[in-house]
Design a protein around this nucleic acid. Sequence first.
RNA 1: GGGGAGAUACCCAAGCGGCCAAAGGGGGCAGACUGUAAAUCUGUUGGCUGACGCCUUCGGAGGUUCGAAUCCUCCUCUCCCCA
Length: 433
Amino acid sequence: MHGRSDVAGLVEHLNDRGFIHQISDPGLERMLEQQRTACYAGFDPSDSSLHLGHLIPIIGLMHFQRYGHRPIAVIGGATGMIGDPSGRDRERTLMSIDLIRSHERSIQRQLEHFLNFDDTETGAIMVNNYDWTHPYSYLDFLREIGKHFSVNTMISKESVRMRLESRDQGISYTEFSYQILQAFDFHHLWKTNGCKVQIGGSDQWGNITAGIDLNRRLGGEQLYGITFPLLMTASGRKFGKSEGNAVWLDPIRTKPYELFQYFIQTDDKDVIRFLKLFTFLDLKEIAELEILVRDEPQTREAQKILASEVTRLIHGEAGLQTADGSTRILFGDEPICNYTDSILNRVFSDTPSGNLPKEHLEQDLTVVNAMVASGMCGSKGEARRLVSSGGFYINNIRETDPTRILTVNDLASDTIMVLRSGKKRYFIIRFSG
RNA sequence: GGGGAGAUACCCAAGCGGCCAAAGGGGGCAGACUGUAAAUCUGUUGGCUGACGCCUUCGGAGGUUCGAAUCCUCCUCUCCCCA
């Protein structure tokens, strides 16, 4: 616990750090200063891992906890069975129940380590909306909850309207009903945990306000919502994508090293904004870094701190150490030689690789053949082009002769050869005896 | 149901009998410059080959021709207009 409940101004704090896109009601600020409440964010089990996009609501919850409120992480076991139409231009395919349940377990494990689940008043709790949605019968739900929703309002929500206007996609009754379920969650959490705040991405606005309205109709208190801005990078790409793929929190799917790299490559124009969002550094410290970015951008101090902080937050100190160690080998500019297999295996554990019998090194393995065998190049022509353009390296030493015969002297360790294309695309070949 | 337009490589898009492995742009991959940045400039972007060259590719199946992405027939799909 970081006892910060004495510090007023959570909303102001969040706003200064760039978390706030919309607030449902200006009264939120005063309410949060006058009472302890709970704040929830929902996480859909649509995949077996959370990704960087989920980090914003997670850190949002952490800020609430630091300011003396109880964070509630809601696993969308029920809503995940239905499919949120928000931000989707087409109907989703329903996932099997088994798959949803298994996703729930894995994202639950991921969420556990970001929040304190102690027994205090600000201890986080994790719940699954399946638990309170599932017992309802269809008829009871329609009578007790559905009656409070006007279809006229429901079809005016952005997520639904977009799909109604799209001629060929449309929207199923199932997805249309989604907002009712999420609204019911908010009401339920208010009733059972006194939760008065929901946070989420900007696409969640309609769902959040649906919950606020429902609670009012059922005679409950005034509830509040905050949405976060949609994060874009300065170059106009969606934040959290690397080569089109999501950057995952799961260390198997995205290695700590790759996560570290993702952030170290942050654009100067983005790095300060991201430091505010993804780290807990004081704004004062961040302001100093901002000056450094302006005066000495080449040191990339801000990027290094951002990458370290986020890697530590997600993968812990040990994860940061391996990421940092790998970075030194990969970007140290030294030839890679005289290493042990075990060190290189760790550094390159997620690197695409190929296997070859060790005898090939005694025969006629050419540079070009090695490039194709490792999977680095799809054809010999492509391999030759790469070498002649000067973008190919073996063990970090530029290789210029595509026909050279490789020998054991070209190994970086007992059995591993490290190939590199351009500045940072690595491939390795393991030579098995 | 009637009428029209179209389907080309990762994407968009030119080509409309041989000079087409197919213009141009985007994207990708490299190089230079840099800070593992941005911008810019350069090269490259079907396969095999050291190279001549050969092989596969222009929605699908046939056909005409010495020769077809280009012409003909049928089929499949997409879009637009009118009912």
